[in-house]
């Protein structure tokens, strides 16, 4: 299942809507890394609220996305990790270090806006 990517202002928003296979996640990675420069995005938001499992492959690929997007000049925020999913992740040792996470979409937009305003002023 392909993950839709929306452009909103300087941000790309990818909302995962159902369980993903490994190829779906890889496809998402390639699409985001490609589009971030094409749309001159400053931030990438990946909404994982619908995921009920995040295993080492999903977590590793999300981390890859964050790193590749950074190399392409933008920042990634993962939003909506469910409590039970977070518990399973940390018990597996999958802590997504170096990746910003927020509670939901609204919070991630506020995070980016705050950050870009601060940077814009300085």
């Amino acid at each position: 299942m392909q993950v839709p990517i929306l452009k909103q202002g300087p941000y790309l928003i990818a909302t995962i809507q159902a369980a993903l296979t490994d190829s779906d996640i890889v496809q998402l990675r390639d699409a985001l890394v490609d589009q971030v420069v094409r749309h001159r995005a400053r931030g990438v938001i990946i909404d994982v609220t619908a995921l009920d499992v995040m295993d080492s492959f999903a977590t590793g690929t999300l981390r890859d996305i964050a790193q590749m997007v950074r190399l392409r000049g933008a920042e990634t925020v993962i939003v909506g990790i469910q409590p039970d999913v977070a518990l399973a992740m940390v018990q597996m040792g999958l802590v997504l270090e170096g990746v910003t996470t927020t509670l939901d979409l609204e919070e991630s937009l506020a995070y980016f806006q705050h950050k870009h305003n601060v940077l814009g002023r300085s």
């Binding site: 499992v53 409590p83 018990q91």
Partner: peptide, 17 residues
């Protein structure tokens, strides 16, 4: 519990992969 079921599902995902 849902949390425990998620742990099990995650483990199965790893083993199957």
């Amino acid at each position: 519990s849902p949390a425990q079921a998620t742990l099990l599902a995650t483990a199965i995902s790893e083993l199957a992969r």
